[in-house]
Structure formats: C-alpha cells, structure tokens
Design a protein around this nucleic acid. Structure first.
Lengths: 152, 152
DNA sequence: GCCTAATCATTTGTATACATATGATCCTAG
DNA sequence: CTAGGATCATATGTATACAAATGATTAGGC
C-alpha cells in the first residue's frame, strides 16, 4: 500500500505543478496562431486563408482532382473542403465540373484567374515560410522541421 | 539585366518546385490537428476542448482573474474567451461575478465542480502531452519543445 | 443481376479564431 | 473636474474544423 500511496502522491504533485505554457499542445496552438497572423499579413491583397491557399496549390500541382481527394491531400474533412472550394469557386479561382464517369465526383480545376493568382500567392508563401522560421537559425530550421514532421 | 533575369528565373523555379507539404505552416496546422484529436480522445468523458481546458487550468493557477486577462494569458482574443467562458459557466464549472471596484470587469473563479473536474482533466492532460510527443525520442523532445517555444 | 456496403458531396450543429463595432465604465490630461 | 482616450465585455460576421446525418451514386459479393 505504501507504494500505491507514494505513486498517488507523485501524481498529485504532477497535477499541482502542471504548467500550461510548457505543454506541447498549447505551444502548437500558439505557434499555429502566430503563423496564421504572418500568413494573413504576408498574403496582403491576395486575400487567401491558409486552407484556401493549400487547396489552390494542390490543384495547381495535380491539374485536376476531385473535391474529397483534395481534402485528403490537404488534411481537410469533406465538410471543411466543401466550404473552402465553394468560396474559391465563388471568387472564380476554381472551376467545378461533374465527372461524367462517376457522377458522385466534383472535378476541380484552376481557372485562368486561379492560375495567375496561385503564382503570386506562392511567391508570397515562400516569404511567409521564411518569416515564420525567422526566430530559428539556419542550423535549427531543418532540425525543427524534421521533428515537426514526425509529429504528424 | 542578365542578373535580374537570372534572379527572376530562380524565383520562377522556386515557385514551380514549391511543395506544400514541406512548408512549416502546413506542418504546424497538421501537428495541431493531430494534437486536437489526441486531446479529444484523451479527455474522454471529461468533454473539454483544448481552449476550455486552458482556461480552467489558468483560473485554477490564479484563483481569480478577469475575463480579458484570462484571454491574454491563454492566447484568446476577447471575443473568443467570451464564448469559452460562457460555455464553462453554462456547465457550472466557472463562476462569473461583476467586480465591485471596476464594474467593467467580470471576475472568474472555479466552482467546486470546476475544481474537481480540473484535477481529473490535468491528470489526463499529462497523458495527452505524452501521447502527442510519443513519436519523438526522449532526447528529441526537449529539443523540439525549445525550438517550438522560439516560434511563438 | 441484385443487394449491401462504400464513397461522394452536402447540410446542420457546435466550437474555436479573429476583425470590427458598440455601449458601459474607468482613467488621465489639462 | 470634465472631456477624450483607453479598457472591458459583448455582439456580429466570416472562416476553419469536425461530428453526424442524408441522398445520390458506385462497387463488390454472391
């Protein structure tokens, strides 16, 4: 029983000395917040959110892709990607056509306007990545990125 | 002019070879998503979101605090913390009283129910941090956390 | 070939996250 | 001591993010 009581006392100490600001979840949330702010400032008049940007870049990479597939590649569930694509289509950046071979699918492509915008956006995206990583030295950046990748 | 043209060609190459999945912003978003999933699973029937949890822990630390101040300490703007606190109060976890010395302020305290719940929640929060960092070795974890802290 | 299961897109509801606006209250310069 | 600015909480609107449900369509097992 003494060991059980000691184990419980140790756990109570952990709870009492728990510091929110040291938890990885809190730090991830704050780092993500900071990046979102940098992103919004960096995009300026291009006026894209990070998810809209991810969707545009991925459509650019693949030329044509279905909506749910795009969601999987950009880590958005069907409900989220639906809203993102709907807003991109409303701005005339993305073209949605029903797939003739599978009528469940919405095939997505960039419009001419979308292709032009994504070029500008990526140029700014490069600067945004640089600005986000600015607090890290050149040596620290690849270390951080490789560890961050492991957490996904 | 040759140098300018070369510089532009280099930038065009950067745009053409841009890989979304390697950008720190995309990785941060995905790591944060993964943590949120782990958090929700780990909390189980405690049924707290990460921000609700952060608010409860911080009120526990300080005993009493005004709403906007709590928002600053947990990195939530006034509109966001308002909703978070409103939901915690609706569940009877937090008590809101107008400050007699400054009638602009809403002073927040944990209820008995809130104090009991936060104990359980922090015990699970410790496991959630562990689960989030599980892909990293013991040596990698402090490195990652120290680099992540620099990005805030 | 048919029935069931799976997939796709959409819709609804809840919860951050933030910009912006507003009214109440406090503080401070003059 | 009062007018102007600052702070606080709230409200509204937009945009993720995801769970859960739905209807349309396709694919697989038999």
């Amino acid at each position: 029983m003494a060991t059980k009581a000691a184990a419980q006392a140790a756990k109570d100490d952990d709870v009492a000395s728990y510091v929110l600001e040291q938890q990885v979840g809190h730090l991830l949330r704050r780092a993500h917040q900071r990046h979102t702010t940098i992103f919004q400032d960096g995009m300026g008049d291009v006026q894209l959110t990070p998810t809209q940007y991810a969707a545009l870049v991925k459509i650019r990479d693949l030329g044509q892709i279905s909506q749910n597939q795009l969601g999987r590649l950009t880590a958005m569930d069907p409900a989220t990607i639906q809203g993102v694509v709907q807003r991109l289509a409303a701005r005339g950046l993305v073209d949605r056509t029903a797939d003739p071979h599978d009528r469940r699918l919405m095939q997505l492509r960039l419009t001419a306007k979308g292709r032009a915008l994504v070029q500008t956006a990526i140029a700014r995206g490069i600067g945004i990545t640089e600005a986000t990583l600015a607090p890290l030295s050149e040596a620290e950046r690849p270390i951080f990125l490789s560890l961050l990748r492991k957490l996904i």
